[in-house]
Simulated assay, not measured.
Amino acid sequence: MNRYESMMNHLLVQFSNTKVLQAIFCAISDELQLLDDTFNNLKEKRWIDTGEGAQLDGIGEIVDRNRLINNAITINFFGFENQINTTGFNQARFREYSEPYLSSTSLSDEEYRLILWAKVNKNNSLCYMNDTIKSIQFIFKTDIAIVQDIYNAKFIVGIGRKLTKNEILFANALDLIVRPAGVSCQSMTHFDKDNVFGFYNQKFAKGFGQAPLSEIFSNNLIKKGYVV
């Protein structure tokens, strides 16, 4: 119901057919409707799930995470097998020795919402192990997240779905996994939970010749342009 309909519905019956009042309501209802819409937007569209553009940028300033992601997208060059976003002979140019391999990108609103929620969760976490697992599940949109303590204030992560090459780059560029101060993520692996090699008593595991190994990715390897 818009403002004009609301005003008409509040008239007493004896005035409902008064042309003068209808004309007055019609004359002022558009401006009142604009005020209604503006106040509604102030209330409803300044949240992560409903905000757009500048509203999301404002939330990003509050949680300290802007939408520009540095070194997150690969530039297409000539390369060899296992190098990220490379193509063969006559399909892309060679990269100069000092030329950057990665470029920056600005996130769309939909992508930015996921990052903002992840940053909010990280800012408000008590950094228990379950918080770490939940943050991995949320960021990588998976039900399967394995975290293993390897001592010396380090842990390794297993992600139960195969990631795209750009998802791997984002994972390293953003660093949004919940973890206590002084504790670092040594490495992360990704695997197809329905088709991965493993050993006796390992969940999801299949035997020799039945499934591939999980794949490890880390910051150092990504900077060199490789995924092992």
Score class of each variant (00 low, 15 high):
4 Y>M: 13
5 E>D: 15
5 E>S: 15
6 S>M: 04
7 M>D: 10
8 M>F: 08
9 N>V: 06
12 L>E: 12
16 S>H: 10
16 S>W: 13
18 T>P: 09
19 K>Y: 04
19 K>A: 02
21 L>Y: 12
22 Q>V: 13
24 I>N: 10
24 I>R: 11
24 I>Y: 07
27 A>D: 11
29 S>M: 06
30 D>K: 07
31 E>W: 01
31 E>V: 04
33 Q>T: 12
35 L>P: 06
42 L>V: 13
44 E>S: 13
46 R>S: 10
48 I>R: 06
48 I>P: 10
49 D>V: 15
51 G>K: 11
52 E>Y: 15
52 E>C: 13
53 G>Y: 09
53 G>V: 11
53 G>T: 08
53 G>W: 10
57 D>Q: 13
58 G>N: 14
61 E>V: 07
61 E>A: 12
62 I>K: 08
68 L>P: 02
73 I>W: 04
78 F>I: 09
80 F>C: 15
83 Q>S: 08
86 T>I: 07
86 T>R: 07
87 T>K: 12
88 G>N: 05
90 N>C: 01
90 N>G: 10
95 R>N: 05
98 S>W: 14
99 E>N: 13
102 L>N: 04
102 L>E: 06
103 S>Q: 08
103 S>V: 15
104 S>C: 15
106 S>I: 10
107 L>F: 12
108 S>E: 11
109 D>A: 08
110 E>F: 11
112 Y>H: 01
113 R>Y: 10
115 I>W: 02
116 L>V: 11
118 A>W: 04
121 N>E: 05
124 N>L: 08
124 N>H: 08
127 C>E: 07
132 T>S: 07
134 K>Q: 09
136 I>G: 05
136 I>R: 00
138 F>V: 09
139 I>F: 07
140 F>E: 06
142 T>L: 02
144 I>V: 03
145 A>I: 03
145 A>S: 07
146 I>L: 07
146 I>V: 14
151 Y>P: 00
152 N>C: 05
154 K>G: 08
155 F>D: 01
157 V>L: 01
162 K>L: 12
163 L>I: 12
165 K>L: 14
165 K>Y: 10
167 E>F: 09
168 I>E: 05
168 I>K: 04
169 L>M: 14
172 N>K: 13
173 A>L: 01
176 L>E: 15
177 I>W: 07
179 R>S: 05
181 A>V: 04
181 A>S: 11
182 G>K: 04
183 V>E: 02
183 V>M: 09
183 V>Y: 03
186 Q>G: 03
187 S>F: 02
191 F>Y: 08
192 D>M: 04
193 K>C: 00
193 K>W: 00
194 D>E: 01
195 N>R: 00
198 G>Y: 04
199 F>A: 13
202 Q>V: 04
203 K>E: 09
204 F>K: 00
205 A>T: 02
206 K>P: 03
209 G>C: 14
210 Q>W: 08
210 Q>G: 07
211 A>F: 03
215 E>R: 06
217 F>D: 02
218 S>L: 14
218 S>G: 12
219 N>Q: 08
219 N>V: 06
219 N>Y: 03
223 K>D: 14
224 K>H: 14
225 G>I: 13
226 Y>H: 12
227 V>S: 09
